[in-house]
Amino acid sequence: MLGIPLLLSGCGGPFSTLDPGGPGAAGIAWLWWGMFGYASVVLVGLVWLWLHAMRRDPGNISDKQAQTLQNRWIFWGGLVLPSVSVSLILAFGLPAGYPMLPTPPEEGEAVRINVEGHQWRFETSYPGTDIVLENHMLIPAGVPIDVYLTSADVIHSFWVPRLSGKQDMVPGHTNVLRIMADEPGRFRGHCAEFCGLDHAHMKLVVEALEPQEFDAWLEESRTDE
């Protein structure tokens, strides 16, 4: 049982949420392993308790004893256990979402990139430039990026699992998702909201460059104009 996490960590292919390449996905991956461990213990414990309760000989239990027993079981198992579990999960879990919120970064400024969903492609554009990329996105590594998401037709969802969670692209609305890649590299993304016939093929590649390289690329495109 314990071997499974070791077996899985660092694998799972180019879309694996368990092989994080940025702070957003990393926090969630840790959260997953924590919750997975906790939930496994609860599940095994409950099933054991259930089987034991079915097998054991209760002896002669008076109604009064049963009443006390009932109150104890329901108080500890029905009230305390779920309340404590839920509080723990919320306390550790909600902060894991902070890296994905477009708050002002501690230093510098977040890079803004617009992505518009179309049936069935992602159109990436860089404010202040004429650059428009299709199913492709260049970002600087180690720098927070605010992705401004919208859609030209139906609802899509922007998701690069190794970098962060997803946000929907809804016509008429603009959602902002903070992503960041720790290191330069290639990260793959997929439309996550069913968007019609070719939904299965609506993918994109996010390429994280060294910041200088990225700046040079952006500058080069500007001079191209």
């Binding site: 939930a39 099933v47 969670g165 997803k166």
Partner: peptide, 25 residues
């Protein structure tokens, strides 16, 4: 019991917004 409790536990996980953002859909 086995199946429903397992589903309930993943349900609590999904109710956590950051985790939901990752595995939703």
């Amino acid at each position: 019991l086995v199946i429903f409790v397992a589903g309930g536990l993943t349900g609590v996980m999904l109710a956590l917004v950051p985790f939901d953002w990752q595995v939703h859909d």
